[in-house]
Nucleic acid binder design. Structure first.
Length: 425
RNA sequence: GGAGAGAUGGCUGAGUUGGUCGAAAGCGCUCGACUCGAAAUCGAGUAGGCGGUUCCCGCCUCCUGGGUUCGAAUCCCAGUCUCUCCGCCA
């Protein structure tokens, strides 16, 4: 959520920042609501103050044997006025909240305006793989090596699900182990959160109310609408760990990572080119998350993207890093880097990690604060997240980039202690 | 799934015949005194949010949301969560 004080002080600056996302707003109406809100609060507080004062005097008057009936009648009228003001206030605050909820985060100053086409490749690592034999795509490889069972996956879960089998399961699990071990070594705290979360968690993350259709809802018993949902990423859980808390400055930065499957509806996004394991309703991911002081978040973002890059490099996979243009940055975030790994059969780079700084956007929604030592005051923290990494996207990249002429696949060195073999054949 | 108990400030925990209760007391924490220093002791302070004429004033918050009342931590209704016992169970 954007700070309404900022909009009040400099609506034009906020409008221009959002315009970089191709998001057009007009704050005129909001500002009039805001003015009315503050007027109502003043009026209400004044009446409340009067009521409190007089109510305090009533016991004394009674003790003195004075007739208080006229005072009671007057206070009754005051109370009724307060109720009227409050109901209007409730109405207008709901409007304000709805408006603010609909706004995406402001892109960072160094994020360029425009959509995907303006994304900037900041680093490329490794060489484009060349094959002196007819290379197979990951689906052929997975099937011929018995790593994945698509048909039974659909039998069990429906369209968009697959099953890792045998060495495939071991390869997937090896990736998870590789990441977990690396994050532990870097001092991140390991978290295994629930996969079912409450509505409030989705709100804090910025998932709701706007992007409610992207997740699997779990219906409540008696038609009360959904109360819980399957997490679309561990970020949604981790960002809620400290919701409504005040952290000590000395506790920051808080650095966490979690492993969870990620469940997504992906409604209408199916494309024929994305067969195989590129886009499913469930995939595995290890997620990094940090809570930092505002002045530390920019450096933390760099730290996290470099951490994620090192993991891909450890696997020896050709990839690139892009800094996203404003309109390609997801709604809750101010700045995002993507790591994209080369999928030879698609002749495309596909995202395996996305590292973002939400700054105080999620913290404001979820009331995540810390106490500043120097001032004793509370301030909103900054939150950051990065995939570290999405295993289900790496799996096809490994199969395709590490395949050999005989149809076997060389296991990247860091994974071998878990796969048990150097080459899958 | 059945039965019962409870939810108060960083923590423990008073307060439930409605009225100096935003809340006793203890602990913790911060600052000061004492001390070479520390412990002990003594003194002071110590919630969050909103609004304003912003070194000050007002308002709101005792799980959440409604209600009764001039006035609610205290009374009424609905909901959420936690704990205990029983059943079931990896």
């Amino acid at each position: 959520m954007i700070d309404i004080n900022l909009i009040r002080q400099d609506p034009e600056a906020v409008r221009q920042a959002l315009a970089k996302r191709q998001f057009e707003v007009d704050f005129f109406e909001l500002l009039s609501w805001d003015a009315e809100r503050r007027t109502l609060i003043s009026q209400g507080d004044e009446l409340r103050s009067k009521r409190n004062r007089v109510s305090d005097q009533i016991p004394a008057m009674k003790r003195q044997g004075l007739d208080v009936s006229s005072v009671l009648a007057e206070m009754k009228a005051v109370s009724d006025q307060i109720k009227e003001i409050d109901s209007r206030l409730t109405e207008i605050e709901a409007q304000i909240k709805q408006f603010l909820d609909s706004l995406p985060n402001m892109p960072d100053d160094d994020v360029v305006a425009g959509g995907k086409e303006r994304n900037e490749v900041v680093r490329v690592w490794g060489e484009l793989p060349q094959f002196d034999f007819p290379a197979k795509d990951h689906i052929e490889l997975a099937l011929s090596l018995g790593l994945v069972d698509y048909e039974r996956g659909a039998k069990l879960g429906g369209n968009g699900f697959w099953i890792y089998t045998g060495k495939g399961a071991r390869l997937e699990w090896a990736l998870l182990n590789y990441f977990v071990e690396a994050h532990l070594a870097d001092g991140y705290e390991f978290i295994l959160p629930p996969h079912i979360l409450t509505y409030d968690c989705g709100y804090t993350a910025g998932q709701f109310p706007k992007f409610s259709e992207d997740v699997f809802h779990i219906e409540a018993d008696e038609g009360r609408g959904f109360q819980q949902f399957l997490l679309p990423t561990a970020e949604t859980a981790l960002v809620n760990l400290h919701r409504d808390e005040i952290l000590q400055e000395s506790d920051l930065p808080k650095r966490y990572f979690a492993y969870t499957p990620c469940y997504r509806r992906e409604a209408g996004s199916y494309r024929a080119q994305e067969r195989g394991m590129i886009r499913g309703h469930q995939f595995n991911k290890v997620e990094l998350f940090q809570y930092t002081r505002p002045e530390d978040s920019a450096a933390a973002l760099e730290e996290m993207i470099h951490k994620a890059e090192r993991l891909v490099q450890g696997l020896g996979l050709h990839h690139r890093v892009s800094k996203l243009a404003a309109a390609d940055v997801s709604a809750s975030m101010a700045k995002t880097y993507d790591i994209e790994v080369w999928i030879p059969s698609m002749k495309e780079y596909k995202e395996v990690s996305s590292a973002s700084n939400a700054k105080d956007f999620q913290a404001r929604r979820g009331g995540m604060r810390f106490r500043r030592q120097a001032t004793g005051k509370t301030e909103l923290v900054h939150t950051l997240n990065a995939s570290g990494l999405a295993t289900s996207r790496l799996f096809p990249a490994i199969l395709e980039q590490c395949q050999q002429a005989d149809g076997s696949v060389v296991v990247p060195e860091p994974l071998r202690k878990w796969t048990g073999v150097d080459v899958i054949r």
